[in-house]
Design a protein around this nucleic acid. Sequence first.
DNA 1: GCCAACGTTTAGTACGTATTGAATGTATGA
DNA 2: TCATACATTCAATACGTACTAAACGTTGGC
Lengths: 165, 165
Amino acid sequence: MDSATSRFTDRMGLIFEAEGQPPIAGRIFGYLLVSDDPRSLDQLAGALAVSKASVSTNARRLAEMGMLERVCRPADRHDYYRVAPDLFSRTMAERLRRWQRFTQAVGEARRTLPIRSERVRARLRGYESAYAYIVGEIGEALERWEHASAGGRHNGWLAQNGGRR
Amino acid sequence: MDSATSRFTDRMGLIFEAEGQPPIAGRIFGYLLVSDDPRSLDQLAGALAVSKASVSTNARRLAEMGMLERVCRPADRHDYYRVAPDLFSRTMAERLRRWQRFTQAVGEARRTLPIRSERVRARLRGYESAYAYIVGEIGEALERWEHASAGGRHNGWLAQNGGRR
DNA sequence: GCCAACGTTTAGTACGTATTGAATGTATGA
DNA sequence: TCATACATTCAATACGTACTAAACGTTGGC
C-alpha cells in the first residue's frame, strides 16, 4: 500500500475512533473504500499490517452495521469483503440509527420520568416532534435522490454546485 | 435525584459513551435536559455524585459543542448551565459536523490518492454528491420547520403521526 | 489585605477495551 | 483418514483515557 493510501486509512481509523468504534474498523473501511476488487481477510491483514483476528472481528462488525458486504466466490474458501453497493444510504441509515437511540431515550424520559415542569415536557415533546419531522423529510429526500440516480441524471450535481452549498 | 432520573442520566451516559464521548458528559446533558432551571457546577456534581473537576471540564466541552449554554447571573459567582434553547438544531448540527469529517476525508482521498479504477472514483464522487445533496435538503427542511415553529403550528405534528413514521 | 468561595488545571490512578498470538473449529482435497 | 487452509474464538496484554484529589489562580466580601 502506498504511503498516501496509508495516511488515508489511518485518518479513517481516527475518525472511526472518535465515533466510538475500533480504529482498525475505520482502516479496513477506508482501505476497501478505495479498493476496486473485494479483499480477503489475509489481504486486509497484510495491507494494514494487523492481525487476522482483528480483521475478522472488525470486518464482520462492519458488515453487521451494513457498511460492508461479505462476498463468497464459488470454489474459493476465502471470505471477501467490499463496501456496500448502496454505501451512502447505508451510512445514512447507521447515523440515523444512532440518533434514534438518543431520541428514543428522550421519549421514554418524557413518558416515565416525574417531570413537574411543563416547560421541560414541552422541550422534550418539541425535540421528538422535530426529530420525527426531519427523519421523514430525509427519507423523502433520499427517495427523490435514488429516483433521480436511477434515471442517471445525478452525475452533474456535484459539479453544478461545486461540492458545497 | 430520584431513581428514575438516575437511570435516565446513566443511560444517556452510555449513549454518549457509544458515540465516543465521556459518559459524564452524557449524564450532565441528560440531567440538564430534564431540569427546568439552569444548574450550577456544584449542583451538577452533587446530583450526579461526581467530582466538580469532571463537571467543569465536561460541561465546558458540551458548551463548546453547542449543546449546552453557560449562563451567568449578575451578583452571582456561580456558573450555570442549561441545554441550548434551540437544542434540536444544535444536535443536528453536531451530527452533521461529524459526518462532514468523514465525507471530507472521502473527498480528499478522491483528489489526492493514486486511484486507478474509474469505478472507485465514481463511487467516491457519488458519495460526495449524495452527501452534498442531502445536507442541502436537510438545511431546507430545517428552515421550513423553524418557519412553521415560529408560526406556532408545529405542536400537532407528533400527535398526527404518532411519533413514528 | 486577608479570607472564603468559586472555577480551572494537573498529576496520578484505575478502568475499559482494542489488539494480538495461540487455541479451536470446520471444510476441502489427496 | 489425515493434513491443510481457512475463519473464528479466547485469554492475556498493552494502551488510551475518563475520572479524581489536590494544587492553583481569581474574584468578591468583611
